[in-house]
Design a protein around this nucleic acid. Structure first.
Length: 320
DNA sequence: AATACGGGGGG
DNA sequence: CCCCCAGTATT
């Protein structure tokens, strides 16, 4: 049942009314929703990527306390920013926020752009994050489509049990934009995401659903149909991802530079693991998350050494 | 179109 | 142990 269902105006208003009423009772309020601050919204959106909301609020608060403005984010020290991000996963997101801030300073007069195309050009900003910045930052009518919204609309409008697998993205965008109540995008998006997180979950709670009578997927669930897993996920235990996390954590918890040999000895139990640790460290360095030089390494950027300073001074002196 | 990318919460 | 998460970038 993946064809585009044409929503009648009557259905649109019926769905809006029921869901907005649910939202007014149950939507959680987060500080970035009312702030009308594009930067606060950007940070919240990036923090939210592939991360449960219970973990996002403290992360967002730490980040905003450390880097309250776009300007502060642009100037953030790598090691400090990674310590603020500690344990949240996907640390490249933290670098992306800083890089986005720097580009705003260089190309957008020090402010986040309001134009969706310009937003999408920023690192770490995809369709979801751009929509969050627009609807919470400026109250623009942008539909934020995350995994929750995909599920809710894919079921309610397209009748699919597992919309992430079945519903065509283009159809979901069209549906989301059609349903979005003009002038209430922030409230609507927040409600819809919460609805997918609390009611229309992977194994849905149809008995609590305020639009169950309108939902073509409901009878299929009632008949005992079950949703297939969204996708088989690679094992985390023993993965490179896990090793990256371990190496980064070790560097974070060290006060400064660490001997590479010592890092390897601490983390690796055998030669194979030792190789893995070295490879992972090299990759982290290439990504700007760590540094390594002449047998020592550390979090973030390599500190200026005395000789490097003298050298650069000498070069400057020579060049004039 | 697939895969890489952290880490934790919940069934 | 497996599934999932307010996604995005890269191949």
């Amino acid at each position: 049942m993946t064809s585009t269902a044409a929503l009648t105006p009557r259905q649109v208003s019926s769905i809006r009314r029921a869901l907005l009423a649910w939202g007014d009772k149950y939507t959680q309020d987060f500080p970035w929703r009312e702030a009308r601050d594009p930067y606060a919204a950007l940070v919240a959106a990036v923090c939210s990527q592939q991360t449960q909301m219970e973990r996002v609020l403290p992360l967002w608060e730490r980040w905003m306390a450390a880097f309250p403005t776009l300007e502060a984010a642009a100037a953030a020290d790598t090691a400090e920013l990674l310590r603020v991000w500690a344990g949240a996963g996907y640390p490249r997101r933290a670098l992306a926020i800083r890089e986005a801030a720097r580009r705003c300073s260089a190309q957008h007069d020090g402010a986040l752009p309001r134009d969706p195309i310009a937003l999408l050009a920023l690192p770490g900003v995809g369709p979801f994050t751009a929509a969050i910045v627009r609807c919470f930052g400026w109250a623009d009518d942008a539909a934020a489509i995350d995994t929750n919204v995909v599920r809710v609309l894919g079921r309610l409008v397209h009748g699919d049990l597992q919309p992430a697998l079945e519903t065509r993205p283009r159809d979901l965008i069209e549906t989301a934009e059609r349903l979005l109540p003009p002038g209430a995008a922030g409230r609507w998006n927040a409600m819809l995401m919460d609805y997918g997180a609390r009611v229309c979950t992977p194994r849905p709670h149809c008995e609590q659903c305020v639009v169950a009578r309108l939902c073509p997927a409901r009878p299929r669930f009632a008949a005992g149909a079950s949703a297939e897993p969204v996708r088989a996920q690679p094992r985390f235990q023993g993965s490179v991802r896990q090793w990256r996390g371990r190496v980064l954590r070790a560097l974070r918890e060290a006060s400064g530079a660490v001997r590479v040999a010592s890092l390897v000895r601490t983390l690796a139990a055998d030669d194979a693991e030792a190789s893995t640790v070295r490879e992972v460290l090299a990759k982290l360095c290439a990504e700007g998350l760590a540094w390594s030089h002449r047998g020592t390494c550390g979090l973030g950027d390599r500190p200026e050494s005395r000789s490097a300073t003298l050298e650069s001074t000498a070069v400057k002196g020579d060049s004039r």
